[in-house]
């Protein structure tokens, strides 16, 4: 199939950036979206134009490296999938595709479609862990965990830190990402001792960097792991409780 791409090109952080139009010809519908870009890049390289830079690694929808706005939707039209798992059969021959990088104040563009998502790490550093040193763990089966709790914690733990929730949210909020980690650890017995400390610290860091939540639910819709917004309510509850507990 043949497509017309409008791709955001930006040589560096300081460059203004612009859209450039490319033709993608003879693309197999079985190719993944990134493989389609590979083909385009081969062509560009031959023509002496620098290939389109985009982040990717596992190409299995698990490392969270890939991600771009495809026709105005993070990770493209097929919900619940990362860009690398989006396949060209989702498009029609002759389609026009607009490709733009994630946009948020704290996600500056590094080059073309690559942005700096390190602020998400900062939220984890604020408390997204259980403080247990290597070697001090108890025998694993000494704390049984109800299957239901474990399953829900797992739903939250599936987050791949791709940043699509931020990218898609009209408010540029990182609520879903933060809430997922708060829920993952807050649900499990191991996470209890630091539960309220954690939520306050993570929320306050999130708040310095990102927007607010108006419950648009856009994040849930584009999340490659379909993490439910209910976790956001859970985070709000824990935060309120924590504030009243700690004063």
């Amino acid at each position: 199939m043949n497509l017309t791409l409008h791709v955001w090109r930006q040589t560096s952080r300081d460059d203004a950036g612009r859209f450039v139009t490319y033709k993608a010809e003879g693309i197999s519908p079985d190719a993944s979206f990134l493989e389609m870009l590979d083909v385009v890049n081969e062509g560009l390289n031959d023509r002496g134009e620098q290939p389109i830079h985009f982040e990717h690694d596992c190409r299995e929808g698990i490392c969270g490296s890939c991600g771009m706005m495809i026709n105005g939707v993070a990770h493209g039209p097929l919900g619940g999938t990362a860009t690398c798992q989006l396949h060209m059969r989702q498009f029609k021959d002759g389609d026009e595709i607009r490709i733009e990088p994630w946009r948020a104040r704290v996600f500056p563009v590094i080059k073309d479609l690559i942005v700096d998502r390190s602020p998400l790490d900062r939220i984890i550093q604020a408390g997204g862990y259980v403080s247990v040193n290597t070697g001090s763990a108890v025998e694993a089966n000494t704390l049984p965990i109800p299957k239901q709790i474990q399953e829900t914690a797992m739903d939250a733990a599936e987050c791949i830190q791709c940043g699509a929730c931020v990218a898609q949210c009209p408010n540029g909020a990182a609520q879903l990402f933060t809430a997922a980690k708060v829920a993952h650890l807050g649900l499990l017995p191991q996470g209890q001792p630091e539960r309220y400390e954690r939520v306050v610290n993570m929320v306050e860091t999130m708040d310095e960097l990102f927007g607010t939540c108006s419950l648009f639910r856009e994040c849930e819709a584009v999340c490659p792991k379909s993490i439910p917004v209910d976790f956001i309510a859970r985070m709000n509850r824990d935060y309120l409780v924590a504030k009243f507990k700690r004063g």
Binding site: V73, G79, P170, R217, A221
Partner: peptide
């Protein structure tokens, strides 16, 4: 810096 295009999926 706003997107040149951002579609709402479910909002």
């Amino acid at each position: 810096l706003a997107y040149t295009r951002r579609d709402n999926v479910v909002a």
